[in-house]
């Protein structure tokens, strides 16, 4: 069971959280203007890296807030967590080092 650093609540057990997949996939401002190919990319295509991955998590059974996290998919180590709309401090390359 992972220990996840919620930006609001601090370190809390994984069972209180839910993962929402890849982070920083913004919904297009005007979806009707988006072409079929781009729209299908937005809907269905996600990264699945071996290594540091930016993910969305929600502290479902805690403060109820969504946030972002950098997690190493190999070691399950969390590099950092940061609020929605924010940017990570570490670049993924640094995090991997």
């Amino acid at each position: 069971m992972l220990l996840i650093d919620c930006p609001c609540c601090g370190l809390r057990p994984e069972t209180e959280f839910r993962c929402g997949g890849q982070a920083h996939v913004a919904r297009p401002e005007k979806p009707v203007d988006v072409g079929d190919q781009d729209w299908s990319e937005y809907l269905f295509v996600r990264a699945n890296p071996r290594g540091v991955h930016a993910e969305r998590w929600i502290h479902q059974h805690g403060c109820g807030r969504w946030f972002n996290a950098l997690r190493d998919t190999v070691s399950d180590r969390f590099v950092e967590t940061y609020p929605m709309g924010g940017k990570p401090k570490s670049t993924t390359t640094e995090a991997r080092a």
Partner: peptide, 13 residues
């Protein structure tokens, strides 16, 4: 509720 909350917090805060 989760679906609504997701859009509210992450797309239209």
């Amino acid at each position: 509720l989760n679906h609504m909350e997701d859009y509210l917090q992450t797309e239209w805060p």
